[in-house]
């Protein structure tokens, strides 16, 4: 049995939640076993996980923090051949906690499904996307935390038998306050990211970047210098020491493309660079480029995309 932890937020699944079930299904198919999904979503809502390959769906009351959930899961994976957790902010705490408590073998930042299953061998990002590590999970329960958007969602019917379980394990933190911006696409799991840098000349010029992001349903991001001087919040800083992203499309406006920035975005499937300087290093990392003034190109791009969206 491959056990997959399926994250939900106020009884809503994220895209990475369904992807986690798809990941587990793919692994289980190679290993020749079933998939058990564990989630705190309501049974009614959780039943849809069968569409992505869950054979058993166990619902339970979960702790609030990643460390609390990791401790709970440790008591629920006794018969598992493997565990899958999406590499969300929460998953990045759950997976290592679970690995420590079960003396497991963990791969985080995993970018593909297992290449073999005995032992489990997977590829993961290392050196801030400047390298690809092939890692072998040799002894203990194999636990895989994958990068959201790495493999995508695939529909495949599972048996979908519903159960409810209980687990011990408690939070060691008191949660005082949680604030999540509504209506904005969260950067780490965004399919499209629109990012801008010092080429925009000042924080007052970000209106067109947000407009472009709106048209595309994209998340907004920025380069390190822009967050360091306070034009944009730290939480938007993409790069080696900021958030690492792997969207389907990354549009970089007025960012030169320093090696530290490229390290955070090079896993993107398609990269577009817009810059006045034809020698900007970003053009070496991009699939498409426009050498031109952002203040002329971006408004045109917004207009063209609106026309495209209206026609498609």
């Amino acid at each position: 049995m491959i056990v997959v932890f399926v994250e939900s937020w106020n009884n809503q699944f994220k895209k990475a939640s369904f992807e986690a079930v798809s990941y587990a299904r793919s692994w289980a198919n190679t290993a020749g076993c079933g998939v058990r999904a564990i989630t705190s979503a309501s049974a009614e809502n959780a039943s849809q996980l069968a569409q992505y390959g869950a054979d058993e769906i166990a619902t339970l009351e979960l702790a609030q923090t990643g460390a609390g959930i990791g401790a709970q899961l440790a008591g629920l994976v006794g018969d598992a051949q493997g565990v899958v957790v999406a590499g969300t902010a929460m998953g990045k705490i759950i997976a290592p906690t679970l690995a420590a408590l079960t003396s497991g073998a963990l791969s985080t930042n995993t970018t593909g499904t297992p290449k073999s299953t005995s032992p489990v061998v997977v590829e993961r990002g290392a050196f801030s996307s400047k390298g690809i590590e092939t890692i072998s999970l040799n002894s203990g329960l194999p636990i895989i935390s994958f990068v959201p958007n790495a493999i995508g969602i695939k529909e495949e019917a599972g048996a979908g038998v519903m159960t409810s379980v209980e687990a011990s394990g408690a939070d060691k933190l008191t949660t005082n306050d949680v604030s999540v911006a509504s209506g904005k696409v969260a950067l780490p799991e965004a399919e499209i990211v629109v990012s801008a840098g010092r080429g925009l000349k000042g924080p007052e010029n970000w209106g067109m970047i947000e407009e472009l992001a709106d048209v595309l349903g994209a998340a907004t991001a920025c380069s390190k210098p822009v967050s360091d001087i306070g034009w944009r919040p730290h939480s938007e800083h993409v790069g080696q020491t900021g958030i690492q992203v792997n969207p389907n499309l990354y549009i970089a406006v007025g960012i030169s493309g320093a090696i530290q920035h490229l390290a955070g975005v090079s896993a993107s499937k398609t990269i577009v660079a817009i810059n006045t300087d034809p020698e900007a290093p970003f053009f070496k990392a991009a699939d498409y480029g426009i050498v031109g003034d952002a203040f002329e190109v971006v408004p045109q791009l917004i207009e063209e995309l609106r026309a495209f969206k209206a026609a498609n």
Partner: peptide, 17 residues
């Protein structure tokens, strides 16, 4: 519990269009 089997560099991008 784990061991690195090998490391590689990502495939080089083809030239920008």
């Amino acid at each position: 519990h784990t061991a690195a089997v090998s490391f590689a560099k990502p495939a080089a991008k083809s030239a920008v269009k």
